[in-house]
């Protein structure tokens, strides 16, 4: 069912990685992504992979869970691999008709796919171990300097946390509506495209109606509690950088230095 979608889902836990300050985790993830694009050869990728594996083990996230994010990307990955193999110029390995497969092509394709997979795993590890609320808290805190140039950081963070908060609710609601319409004999799986598109009407209409109703109720509730746009608001959970966070930052620095050195020597 829809519930089984793991994209961006949070798995509650109480490991060192779960407890890290979200700001540290966000910064480390950004660093990890940048390094992925700087990495050149097996050694630098190996170092990054080591970092990922250690983090996943510490967070008690299994390989199966981590890789469940690949499924929707399979097509993109295959297309990337094929295009890179076919269109990278260089020393031809095999060639037939107008197509030639080059040594460079194979290695580019390999690293490209590796890069995408590591990218997905890394970002999923962040969302698996950080609750949406802490994630937006972290973002808000990191983006605070932008307030100086009149970017409505708090409002954006608020909108984002509301949106994140309502994704599970809407998924649950969709599940319920689908079940209710199925109970009246609705069939979503047979017929041509037009029939199937029409079959969505009994789901989408109630879903939109309820989404608007929820939005309206939420707005009223916020107004009743005199919500204002974040002036002088204090936080229930204040973010503090602890010893473990300094350790994580140190690991991040080592990773950065290591990858840059490997890159310098083209490894």
């Amino acid at each position: 069912m829809l519930k089984d979608i793991t994209l961006g889902q949070y798995f509650p836990g109480d490991t060192a990685i779960h407890r890290l300050d979200p700001r540290v985790k966000i910064v480390l993830t950004v660093e990890y992504i940048v390094l992925l694009f700087l990495a050149k050869w097996f050694f630098s990728y190996g170092l990054i992979l080591l970092f990922l594996v250690c983090s996943a083990i510490t967070a008690h996230i299994g390989a199966k869970t981590l890789m469940s994010g690949f499924k929707p990307l399979i097509i993109i990955i295959i297309v990337t691999a094929v295009l890179n193999i076919l269109y990278t110029p260089g020393e031809p390995l095999v060639s037939f008709w107008k197509i030639s497969i080059t040594k460079e092509g194979i290695s580019t394709a390999f690293f490209m796919v590796l890069r995408i997979l590591l990218l997905v795993c890394g970002t999923f590890l962040l969302t698996y171990t950080t609750s949406p609320i802490r994630l937006t808290d972290g973002m808000e805190s990191l983006l605070k300097p932008l307030k100086k140039i009149k970017v409505p950081v708090h409002e954006l963070a608020m909108m984002m946390s509301i949106a994140l908060r309502f994704i599970p609710t809407l998924i649950e609601e969709t599940d319920k509506i689908i079940s209710a319409q199925k109970a009246r004999g609705a069939d979503f799986t047979s017929g041509n495209i037009i029939r199937r598109a029409k079959a969505l009407v009994p789901i989408l209409v109630p879903l939109f109606v309820s989404a608007f109703r929820r939005a309206d109720e939420l707005a009223t509730a916020m107004e009743c509690r005199c919500y204002n746009n974040g002036e002088n608001r204090t936080k229930l959970n204040v973010l503090v950088v602890k010893r473990a966070d300094y350790a994580a930052i140190a690991v991040g620095v080592v990773l950065l230095a290591g990858t840059l050195i490997f890159r310098h020597y083209g490894l």
Binding site: K176, I177, A180, Q181, A183, P202, P206, V209
Partner: peptide, 11 residues
């Protein structure tokens, strides 16, 4: 089968 709060399925 009539669900809990079935009025939310009207369309």
């Amino acid at each position: 089968l009539v669900f809990q709060y079935p009025e939310y399925q009207l369309f």
